[in-house]
Amino acid sequence: MTTAIVDLYKPVKATLTRVIEESPSIKTFVLKPERNFSFKTGQFIELILEGIGEAPFTPSSSPLVEDELEVTIMKAGFVTEKIHNLNEGAVLGIRGPYGRGYPMNEMYGKEVLILGGGCGFAPIRSLIYNLEAEQDKIEKLTFCYGSKTPKDCIYKGYIDHLRSVKKFEVFRSVDKADASWDETEGVVTCLLDKININIANSVAVVVGPPIMMKFGVQKLLDMGYPENKIFLSMEKNMSCGLGKCGHCMMGKYFVCKDGPVFTYEEIKDQPDIWK
């Protein structure tokens, strides 16, 4: 037991093998861990820059792949800016995985609706990889994704692939379109007016910036989704990952240990869920 946790605090070293530019502010970092590293979709890791700092991220790669890990990172703060400056060959630390991921069991036999915004596509991609591998077990997947402008849309090639999967439908919107854009213009929730879904046999997953999650959840509730069928991946300042350091407290929950995936029913009465 004791040694196990030392391992949890002690990182696995991982080499950066490739950097993919997804948008002007978002890059995907492909990491090769020194030993196999497994996680469940929706769980998060701490990514460590030796001697500098660490930050929590949910891997964007398939949970079925253990010898490689992808993390998609928006340049937003001190640590993420340093990560964005890294070159191939750099050695980082990863520790985890931590927390409670997406409840795959809740999705089997259901029509799965995923509502995502901005960099929220990162954890969602890991979930969709998982759903694609298990597509026999779900009725269908409807994915609604919004970003600010066409330039901010990430995983462009992957979107094309998803559109070729028979059970999957993809709807995209941008807040502000340009001449290159032939899909919807408007906030992501407007895509929910276009979809055809049997809510009685559906679960919804919402991941994105807080303001988008707030309005997304409101719309889903208006559409008739029960509070316990809406799953949210919460972003807080997770640090230790083990429910001790206190930085990610959200009322009575430690987001790192009790989440980061919660039903809306679980968190609706907690403070500052959209901040």
Binding site: G53, E54, C240, G246
Partner: peptide, 12 residues
Amino acid sequence: CSCFLFIERPEF
């Protein structure tokens, strides 16, 4: 009160 911060050092 028992909240804490991790500070990274060389050698991880």
